[in-house]
Design a protein around this nucleic acid. Structure first.
Lengths: 210, 210
DNA sequence: GATAAAATACCGACTGGTCGGTATTTATTG
DNA sequence: CAATAAATACCGACCAGTCGGTATTTTATC
């Protein structure tokens, strides 16, 4: 093993162990010593590759966001309709939510730390927004969606993102509380139906009561 | 001031300061000394009234859940329809979300700590479920809702709760990102429309009518 | 291609400071 | 003079980060 690859390997092992630690017990309660032990590496090696524990965290966040961007770009490039994209999301759901119980639990850590760390906050909030804007664009392509006021589309897109956030959080916290992929599918279905019925003034103003 | 009232006052001040601290900077980064200082109280007083920092946290959680139960009971007792209840929620939203940026930020702390503390986890998860079950009951009272399979109602109720969770989290994290009461209203509207259109195979299969 | 020099990867004992919690003392009330 | 409430000084565990030193690989020189 050449020197360089060895170094890269060590670095990678540290990142993996840190991610596991953060995901399982949180940033604060995961000590550097612990990470090192799990990675089979000394503290010296740790601080050889990273200047601080926080730097490790930020790199993990960065990697996560990058992969997210890639996924988003993929979906956006496919140029599908709302229905298609949400169907796609539906299909991705089981896999993502599967991981949510395990590795994706680090999501919670990102959101938690966003409160105290401005850098993390900015990144976190920014990708919420990015997702929302993405959906705003999508909604404009639905029948009647183009004529909708921007605010309405923004609000609806916000709802969608909030729903996804909620599902991820709840799913990560309590994977066995429900069949999450089923709930996700239902949520997206309801959303689409609600949105498509929005133009029509039918059932809302006077219609039902019970 | 009698001895007893003095004690109660001290105790209350500690709780308030602790809540503020936890909400603003999180459980871990809020030291006991800090809480005491904010409350204008000594460490001795703190440990006179509480056996540990964690006990304070659990009491705050307990109070929060109790008040939540009360609200839930109120709404349930009113025996309203889905529409009415969600309208009620819509009206409560501005107030709650107002506080979300400030005091309700402690919600995040509860959810965070739920990951590492089994007690907190149990409580947290339990009230998610309780809320969901509440909505399941409500959904049964909608036109056509009674005939719906239990799983469908559960999934839909889960969606609703997830949406609310997402809105609270996002709203607490970034109060200025949107007009949250508007987004909430939109979300509930979309949900109701989506749910009421659910029985009918209308919009997506073939034509449309109601 | 041998050898010296430099750079890189790594080790682990140690430190400085933080923080939850305790022990002891002092004040206040009934 | 009890007994409760509150203040102060202090302890010990823990932990992020440091530092002096070693081992291994690469580069330079002849």
């Amino acid at each position: 093993m050449t020197k360089q690859t060895r170094g890269e390997d060590t670095r990678a092992r540290i990142l993996v162990s840190a991610e596991q630690g953060f995901a399982q017990t949180g940033y604060d309660s995961t000590g550097v010593a612990e990470i090192c032990k799990a990675a089979g590496v000394s503290k010296g090696a740790f601080y050889h590759h990273f200047t601080s524990k926080e730097e490790v965290f930020l790199e993990l966040l960065d990697r996560w966001l990058t992969s997210l961007d890639r996924q988003l770009a993929d979906v956006a490039a496919s140029d599908g309709s709302l229905q298609e994209v949400l169907d796609g999301l539906s299909k991705m759901a089981p896999q993502i939510l599967q991981e949510a119980g395990g590795q994706y639990a680090i999501l919670l850590e990102f959101w938690t730390k966003a409160r105290s760390d401005p850098k993390v906050w900015q990144s976190t909030v920014a990708y919420f927004q990015r997702y929302r804007e993405f959906f705003v664009g999508l909604l404009a392509n639905t029948p009647g969606g183009g004529s909708m006021a921007l605010e309405e589309r923004q609000a609806a897109a916000g709802v969608l993102v909030a729903m996804i956030i909620g599902l991820l959080l709840w799913g990560a916290l309590d994977p066995k509380a429900a069949d999450w992929s089923c709930v996700t599918r239902t949520g997206l279905e309801l959303f689409v139906r609600g949105w498509q019925g929005k133009g029509l003034p039918s059932n809302d103003r006077k219609g039902e009561q019970k």
